[in-house]
Design a protein around this nucleic acid. Sequence first.
DNA 1: GCATAAAAAGGACATTTGTCCCAACCCATA
DNA 2: TATGGGTTGGGACAAATGTCCTTTTTATGC
Lengths: 189, 189
Amino acid sequence: MIRTNTDLLDYIALLQRHSVNSIGVEAFKAKQLILEQDRRYNTVYVIKKGIAKCYITDENGKEFIQEFLGAGMEFGELEVFSEKMTICSVSSVSELETYTFSHRIFNELLEKDPKFNKMVMKALADKIRYKAPRHSYQHSYPIEDNILRLKRTFPEFTDVLPKKDIANYIGITTRSLNRALKDLKESGK
Amino acid sequence: MIRTNTDLLDYIALLQRHSVNSIGVEAFKAKQLILEQDRRYNTVYVIKKGIAKCYITDENGKEFIQEFLGAGMEFGELEVFSEKMTICSVSSVSELETYTFSHRIFNELLEKDPKFNKMVMKALADKIRYKAPRHSYQHSYPIEDNILRLKRTFPEFTDVLPKKDIANYIGITTRSLNRALKDLKESGK
DNA sequence: GCATAAAAAGGACATTTGTCCCAACCCATA
DNA sequence: TATGGGTTGGGACAAATGTCCTTTTTATGC
């Protein structure tokens, strides 16, 4: 549920030690908006520590959470390859520390560092692999099953994340989430 | 709705003319199963002509269609980067012609041809960009809105694709699709 | 051209989920 | 300590969607 990529994180930590000025570091307090949907940016972030959420907001203000991002996850990288707007907003959920790359530096690394190139490629592939079954599952199964599934992969999810976010992640309303949680409790989890 | 990537297709056509033996060509009749979920493969396909569907089947046999793939779209490429099973089955919808790459050749190209590398990278990024708003939209809006949206991007969708596939793409039952189509017709589209 | 199977359309009903509320609670701070 | 915003939990009802089934239409093989 909260995705991570330690291989990438370790490698970037290594890179940064050798080229201090090209790779930056940034810190955010909890609940800060870092990227806003439909805007143009010039930075790629890789999470060093903390949790962020990546979400789409529709015209009615409803959020739909794409992913929760943990250590080693990138965001803002899609816009390196096509000069378009971001599709997702990204906010910090907890306090957050990130590495930052300008598009220019990121591209330079992709071109000159085959290992980096491969890792980024794999990270993209993993994002696709991860999303497919998730959305499929959410459509095909009742809410209760989806909650049980979350519990399996991330037992303490109700403690770390606000109910609103969990509901937006599953793509349901808070009301439905509460109802399902109650029913699960009554039927002995 | 049916995705394409002419840049990639053109480039591969070019590549193939110069190295006939490493890039293969394959043809499929309509409704053939090309990749089966949860199996291991060693080939990357790029569609030359025709339409394929990429879908996940759950334990109850329900299909959830991830994407319809048209000219220039790849499939089987995710497994080059992580040696895992396919998550999606892929079947031809119409007659299909594809270019084929062994993992070895695909990797060689990625390493030695920066242009190819960049195109594949961009193709991956586009798949992610495309999926996010689609699933978000499907969750947030009633079926009728989703159908109208399809009609806008692909007006003849009801002629080319079977109802079953359209329903599985939106993530609803055929019954619901028919109901919505009927209501739309009655209210003057 | 006929027989059979598959796809499409839709009626009737059950279930799920959302909408709109309101009440309880936590907790920051004036 | 009182006040107000935000989060949580849930009641009552409405709307959307699914399930099950039957009928009609269209495609396909012999």
